[in-house]
Design a protein around this nucleic acid. Structure first.
Length: 205
DNA sequence: CAGAAGATCTGC
DNA sequence: CAGATCTTCTGC
């Protein structure tokens, strides 16, 4: 997989209908897409190489498993929004809310290949010695993009934050079990999707 | 109201 | 492989 921006490629922002489906359908289609964020100093862009699908009442690994709470309210609101949550006392993680409708599905953005704004990413990720590690892992990706509580509920279909299709087609996709779930909490479900062999993926499947 | 767990990361 | 670090949720 080559990650450089295709010359003169048009970036088309993904619309609400893209997200308005089961997360298991949406997740693999997000691979190869560009996460884009315009900020005060310029633009950040990265190609998604690893994601995980989280469902609702039928998925014990999902924050939506036991219904709506203050934290997960964004998952129940509308497809195409960004659901950002805080965990382990220090990390933020970002998801694209899916559907269909108000079905509380989401796709966790786990890893990406840096494309634009690498200087800003390096400043925010001083412990990343290699460029490969800048966006490797969901909390690292969120940190490099500066995502936190302020971005929970942001609309990916308009505004400064979005996910775009520039015509890039990823290679083979590997499907494995999700990462970091306790036994019995849906750890056995094969809902993690990654670009096979891509070095930016957070870990081996 | 207290206790425990948590969709993680880093350094030893 | 364990510690960091604190919010959120659950049970009493």
């Amino acid at each position: 997989m080559t990650h450089g921006p295709p010359r003169a490629a048009r970036r088309r922002r993904l619309r609400r209908t893209f997200y308005d489906r089961d997360a298991v359908e949406v997740a693999p289609e997000l691979l190869g897409k560009l996460l884009v964020l315009d900020h005060e100093h310029g633009r950040l862009a990265a190609r998604l190489v690893e994601v995980e699908a989280y469902r609702g009442a039928d998925d014990p690994g999902s924050h939506a498993f036991r219904g709506r709470t203050a934290r997960n309210a964004t998952m129940f609101s509308r497809p195409g929004l960004l659901y950002v949550y805080f965990t382990y006392g220090m990390h933020w993680c970002a998801n694209a809310v899916c559907g269909p409708g108000t079905t509380p599905h989401a796709v966790l953005l786990r890893a990406a290949c840096p494309v634009e704004g690498l200087d800003v990413m390096r400043e925010r990720r001083p412990t990343a010695s290699r460029e490969l590690d800048l966006l490797r892992g969901p909390a690292n990706l969120a940190r490099a993009f500066g995502l936190d509580r302020a971005h929970d509920g942001a609309d990916l279909t308009r505004g400064v934050l979005g996910i775009a299709d520039d015509g890039f087609a990823p290679g083979d996709i590997s499907v494995t079990r999700r990462v970091g779930l306790a036994p019995g909490k849906g750890d056995d479900l094969a809902l993690r999707f990654a670009v096979a062999g891509d070095p930016h993926v957070s870990r081996r499947g």
